[in-house]
Design a protein around this nucleic acid. Structure first.
Length: 859
RNA sequence: GCGAUGGUGGCGAAAUCGGCAGACGCACAGGACUUAAAAUCCUGGGCCUCGUAAGGGGCGUGUGGGUUCAAGUCCCACCCGUCGCACCA
């Protein structure tokens, strides 16, 4: 028996959809909206493998379903096309990135179209098109021209920044403003690779050092975005989002809020004080030494002469280590004494100052008060180098009287006691924490610190400012120009976009600057607005730029006056933003945090109407190769969708990817599984169509039996609920059950067949369109209403009751659904299997669950 | 180490509120159709055990406990897998 002609059908209906603009989304504000979004792909040269479209198929099903439910659905697609792989490809081949990108995009669009994914391509965005990156630059400048008002808790225009009265000089005022901008220039240590002549992102370092390159930490001039100003809001607004727990937890941890205090430790014989941050100010009486990070600015100044050689050597060693090496697992802690002492402000005792690379320069103040009795790391270090360890907290509240700790509490010299407890030996002339539980001790000591001016309450975040420049060609140019007199200006809106120039080669300049620095005609010019000679910024933006706001451009992709019309934005984003965002879990932190940050800046300016961009987020699971390993060229286990579509058709591929298992799980590919799904679609076809591709003579206009109605309405209910909850695998199962049932039925009621096709349509749209036509319909099935189910049809006249004796199943009976409990129990008791197991024993108790079981407890 | 998440047949998996474990599919076995094969259709099946058979009995959702008439589902302890973070003071 021949398979249904999927190849002809799929081509035919894809053409039909395109010709009839089936998926062109209108801005019809009268309808309820549904905005469903896929994370847009980076168009790589390799094209798609079968793992890529799994999320796109899911969103396509939901989009088609929601449309059948009467929603105005926006389901757009675009390309995140800036990035290093394309630039590398261009270095090797000489093919311009624009051209390479265009080719790759074409391949992607062909493959996506082949799968019957009904994107509205009239809204396509591409981050590398000047029409698009004009607005990426525009938003960047919005950020650049802002400062963060901590009182109003929002970004405001830099012109509104209050200037301290003592600043009168223009240059000084400018500098003051620059320090407060949300985009600023800083000299920070980056991963510099001399041989490659470029900086590397943290995640790239491993790759290159593995190939034998050396990477060093070197301070360089970089653009930074002050995402840290939004730390609290990014944390708070996370809570109500309908996102996977794991992703919310990861973002929470990434932001890393911790509450404690900053305390000053005066350096003996110097004017300087060392500021430390601690979450346990209650342990200040146990601080027996101070540790500065090797990069701490005071090290240079206060190291004594006799310690200088050792200190310099240690600092040099530390600078050569990458972050990774410095934080390596179970590494012995090292450090050196710098020769100076500080005063513990609580105990008034002298404590030695050390440097050690277990203290990070970029967290807190880059210095700590070490409390070896109550911090594992400090304990480890103190034990290694022989510094004093004292107890100031114990779990035994009666420690005072007895000077004894609880049995389960370790000797303080052996291990740190890090739990909360009660303070001991924590007093001076002004304050005593003795006997107080940790929480109260914290409050009391902070009050004392603030009274005496020694320290203050402090909230610290792990989140760092965002390094926003790359020394690359293939990225958005930063639209800032510098004049010879040391002043600078950002481009005005009418000067955007600042377009990338043509270049001869894409290699880095060799000076730590991007390839753009070598294009003299682009970099150096006379500024038309000021008439002054100017030099352009040569850094470009990182790949995250475009993806921070692309979801807004889809709403109004051709607008040349704004990144997006506000009214359209209001309609499509609604109260909570994108209704459903589907994409890989690998973007759980970076992309999803950066996009939230940009969105909040736009929100502060009233340019978007929601606090958050993505109301609901879902991560689809990866599809592995048939060998259970990650699909990759080198493993030779890549399955190409083109092959699958050629052999089984796009509908089979779509339905199989949904049938494989839960959307969120990682699961291996199985060609045999596609065959199974293909069999199902063929059975569905034959259920309705005959060998001549006409309506089968077995499909007739007859009344459904109650049992058939039950099957039909169960199908509608299950498919509807499963699409809403993204449980596509069980929706497919239900459709299979339907086909199994009706294949065995001689005469198939036409009504049942129509309902089936409507339910199948979101999943397998091509075959559904064709079957719809075969059943004599003249419309497109995807423009039909989704069927509704009737609860009355799901009530069965008889039910099966399980009979148990002492909770073991011994028999089953079928009774009328409205039978009385007592009569069921009577029938049950007379059942021969039940009788056999009861035997001579007495029935002590009977448990009946309506419609389910009767359980006789005997003994 | 910390955080999240998962563990069910030979395989992918299902199971609403604690109520028939294994739906649906793959693979497998038997049968029908066929000269034959493919395709298709029908039937079977968790494991062990007793029985020639019909049929019966026991065990079974990572492990060990607990609650309950009843546990894949709830509680406690532990083991293993996956992902993320990892000296953040």
């Amino acid at each position: 028996m021949a398979a249904y002609p999927f190849a002809d059908i799929e081509q035919k209906w894809q053409n039909f959809w395109q010709e009839h603009h089936i998926n062109t989304t209108q801005d019809d504000f009268s309808k309820p909206k549904y905005y469903i979004l896929d994370m847009f792909p980076y168009p790589s040269g390799a094209g798609l493998h079968v793992g890529h479209p799994v999320g796109y198929v899911a969103t396509d099903i939901i989009a088609r379903y929601k449309k059948m439910k009467g929603f105005n659905v926006l389901h757009p697609m675009g390309f995140d096309a800036f990035g290093l792989p394309t630039e590398r490809y261009s270095m090797v081949t000489g093919i311009h990135p624009i051209e390479a990108t265009a080719q790759n995009v074409e391949t992607y669009k062909r493959q996506l179209g082949m799968l019957g994914l009904n994107y509205d391509w009239s809204r396509e965005v591409n981050t590398t098109h000047p029409d698009f990156y004009k607005w990426t630059q525009w938003i960047f400048l919005k950020i650049y021209n802002s400062w963060y008002d901590k009182v109003l808790n929002k970004a405001r225009p830099i012109d509104e920044l209050p200037i301290p009265s003592e600043l009168t000089d223009d240059i000084e005022i400018d500098k003051y403003r620059d320090e407060h901008r949300l985009a600023f220039i800083a000299n920070i240590p980056v991963n510099w690779c001399e041989a490659l002549g470029t900086v590397l992102a943290n995640e790239e370092v491993d790759e290159w050092t593995g190939k034998g390159y050396t990477v060093e930490r070197r301070p360089m001039r970089q653009w930074m975005l002050k995402i840290t100003e939004y730390a609290d809001r990014l944390l708070e607004d996370l809570e109500p989002l309908n996102w996977p727990t794991s992703t919310k937890e990861m973002q929470k941890h990434w932001i890393g809020k911790s509450v404690g205090a900053e305390i000053s430790f005066p350096v003996l014989g110097e004017e300087d004080s060392i500021r430390v941050f601690t979450t346990r100010p209650d342990t200040v009486f146990g601080a027996t030494y101070i540790v500065l990070s090797p990069e701490h600015p005071l090290v240079e100044k206060i190291t004594t002469d006799d310690c200088r050689i050792a200190v310099d050597e240690y600092r040099k060693q530390a600078s050569l280590k990458s972050d990774l090496e410095r934080t390596e697992l179970s590494k012995e802690k090292t450090g050196v004494f710098i020769g100076e002492y500080a005063l513990n402000p609580a105990t008034k005792k002298e404590v030695p100052i050390w440097i050690a690379d277990y203290v990070l320069a970029h967290y807190g103040t880059g210095a700590i008060m070490a409390v070896p009795g109550h911090d594992e790391r400090d304990h480890e270090f103190a034990s290694a180098v022989g510094l004093p360890i004292v107890r100031v907290v114990t779990s035994n509240p009666r420690y005072f009287e007895e000077r004894l700790v609880n049995d389960n509490e370790p000797d303080i010299t052996v291990a740190a006691f890090t739990d909360y407890g009660f303070n001991v030996d924590s007093f001076n002339n002004e304050v005593s924490l003795d006997g107080l539980p940790t929480q109260e001790a914290k409050e009391k000591i902070i009050a004392w610190l603030e009274e005496t001016g020694i320290g203050e309450r402090k909230v610290q975040f792990r989140l760092r400012d965002w390094l926003f420049s790359r020394q690359r060609y293939w990225g958005e140019p930063v639209p800032i120009m510098y004049f010879d007199d040391g002043t600078k200006r950002s481009l005005d809106e009418d000067e955007l976009p600042l377009v990338l120039p043509e270049v001869e080669n894409y290699n880095p300049a060799g000076t730590g600057e991007s390839p753009l620095a070598t294009v003299d005609s682009w970099v150096n010019f006379i500024d038309k607005k000021t008439g002054k000679h100017a030099r352009l910024e040569t850094n470009t933006m990182p790949q995250w730029g475009g993806s921070c706001w692309y979801y807004l451009r889809y709403l109004d992709p051709h607008n040349s006056n704004a990144f997006c019309d506000f009214t359209k934005q209001q309609y499509w984003m609604g109260d909570n933003g994108v209704d459903l965002y589907v994409g890989g879990a690998e973007h759980a932190v970076l992309h999803l945090l950066y996009a939230r940050f940009w969105h909040k800046v736009l929100f502060d300016y009233g340019l978007v109407s929601t606090k958050e961009p993505f109301a609901k987020l879902f991560h689809q699971g990866m599809i592995l190769g048939e060998d259970n390993r990650k699909m990759s060229k080198s493993m030779k286990n890549v399955v190409n969708p083109d092959d699958v579509v050629r052999e089984f058709g796009a509908d089979s591929l779509r339905v199989f990817e949904m049938f494989m298992g839960p959307l969120e799980s990682v699961k291996p590919w199985a060609t045999k599984g596609v065959e199974g799904v293909s069999r199902f679609l063929n059975r569905a076809w034959r259920m309705i169509a005959n060998e001549e591709y006409e309506l089968s003579e077995h499909v007739q206009d007859i009344q459904m039996t109650p049992k058939q109605e039950f099957i039909v309405h169960s199908l509608i209910k299950k498919v509807e609920e499963d699409i809403e909850s993204l449980g596509f695998n069980t929706a497919v199962s239900q459709m299979m059950i339907f086909v199994n049932e009706f294949t065995q039925t001689e005469i198939k009621p036409r009504q049942a067949m129509e309902t089936f096709v409507l339910c199948l349509a979101p999943f397998a749209p091509h075959i559904s369109e064709e079957l719809w036509r075969i059943m004599g319909k003249t419309t497109s099935v995807c423009l039909e209403k989704f069927p509704t189910w009737d609860a009355d049809k799901l009530v069965q006249s008889t039910v099966e009751i399980v009979l148990q004796v002492n909770s073991k199943i011994r028999s089953k009976i079928i009774v009328s659904a409205d039978a009385h409990q007592e009569s069921i129990e009577q029938i049950a008791l007379l059942d021969e299997h039940v009788q056999k197991h009861i035997g001579t024993m007495t029935v002590r108790k009977v448990i009946s669950v309506k419609g389910k079981l009767v359980n006789f407890i005997v003994g």
